[in-house]
Amino acid sequence: MILVVGGAGYIGSHLVKELIKTKEVVVLDNLSTGHRWAIDKKAIFVQGDLGSEKDLVKVFEKYSIEAVMHFAAFSLVGESMQAPQKYYDNNVGATLTLLRVMRKYNVNKFIFSSTAATYGIPSVDMITEETATNPINPYGRSKLMIEHILADFALSYGLKYVTLRYFNAAGAYETAEIGEDHDPETHLIPIVLEHLLGQREQISVFGTDYETQDGTCIRDYIHVTDLAKAHIVAMQGLLSGQLKAATYNLGNGKGYSVKEVIETCERVTGRRAKVELAERRLGDPARLVALSEKIERELGWKAEIGLEAIIESAWRWHQRKSDTLASQ
């Protein structure tokens, strides 16, 4: 059985949808940002806190856990700047509690949801796993701290782990049963689609004077189902003994500018956006694009879903969510 901590959240719930096809899954989530309805009905759900040793012990006592997947971090960059203690308490402190309980029950396989924020503002166009890590906010620093902790636990306690550094997760499940549903929403694609559904008055583009082809920031977008599949191949690598300790970038290897994303949303939906040009945001790099050749070479994983298909899946989800709200 696989324990998915944070399995009611956006990425965690999509992982559970894929993982439940081949494995028994137990989800632990406190529902502070996740949703009960997003958890696949075939998974076992336990409501509890990552930082509560009592809650964790109940799960490890009752179920035979082979491996743990960890998605239960706070992840808003701006909030982390305003409330760093919240981020270090949950993202670092609570993860240490989880690792301590795993050691107590001799569970030594761990898959960690990390982030491109560990790289900070890179000096290269294409980011590899060897690119220097220099996070510029408490969120990124908290994730990098956990990466260091995992390496130390591997050396001293025999922990076997895979760290997966995401770039921009986007899109929704193919059936539109689940999708991105944050409050507040901070990601570009859902913000644009909500605007095109009439739920926002306009879209703000922060910075049009970057050294890019159209002056707007470039990001690497990866479909959430591609992300889920990467976690599964990483888990298989740990369970088979192929992997002991590894770090991989997860991205498409292609960069799309903010303007390109907005234009693609307009093309997919057949609707026009009202765009407001605004000043740059502090700490926004001009370009964040991943090279994911390492995981393709070692595990055979490659992102398969391109930007237009990502947006099409997200559009189906947002339309369904809008229709559901309208009927209530």
Rank of each mutant, 00 (worst) to 15 (best):
K143G: 00
L99D: 05
N90R: 14
S114L: 04
N108C: 10
A117E: 05
T128M: 01
K143C: 02
M126P: 00
Y139L: 03
A132E: 13
K143S: 01
M145K: 07
F110H: 09
L98T: 06
K104N: 05
F112W: 11
T131D: 00
S142H: 02
T128N: 02
P135G: 15
F112H: 10
M126K: 05
I111Q: 05
R100L: 12
P138V: 12
N134V: 08
V124T: 15
L144I: 10
A117L: 03
T131P: 01
T115L: 03
M145E: 09
V101A: 12
N108W: 02
M145Y: 02
T131G: 01
N137A: 13
D89A: 12
K109M: 08
L98M: 13
F112L: 13
I111F: 06
N91D: 08
K104I: 06
D125M: 03
S114V: 05
I127R: 00
T133W: 02
V107T: 07
A117P: 00
T133N: 05
I121H: 10
S142N: 05
L99S: 10
D89G: 03
I136V: 15
T115F: 01
D89Y: 04
V124Y: 09
P122A: 10
Q85F: 04
I146C: 08
L99N: 07
T133M: 06
M102Y: 04
T118I: 15
T118P: 01
I146M: 09
N90S: 11
P135L: 14
M102H: 06
N106D: 14
I146G: 02
K104R: 12
K109L: 07
L98P: 00
A132K: 15
Y87S: 08
Y119V: 05
N137M: 06
Y88K: 15
R141K: 15
G93C: 13
N134F: 04
Y88E: 14
T115P: 01
I146V: 15
G93R: 11
I136G: 08
T131E: 01
I146W: 00
T128Y: 01
E130W: 05
E130K: 14
G140I: 04
N106A: 15
Y105A: 11
I127Q: 00
M126S: 03
T95W: 09
K104D: 06
T95G: 14
K86Y: 05
T133H: 07
N137W: 03
A94Q: 08
T118S: 11
T97E: 12
R100C: 10
N137F: 02
I127V: 08
M145L: 11
I111S: 06
P138W: 06
Q85T: 08
P122Y: 04
V107F: 00
P122F: 05
Y88T: 14
K104C: 03
E129D: 07
I127D: 00
I111Y: 04
S113Q: 08
S123H: 09
T95K: 15
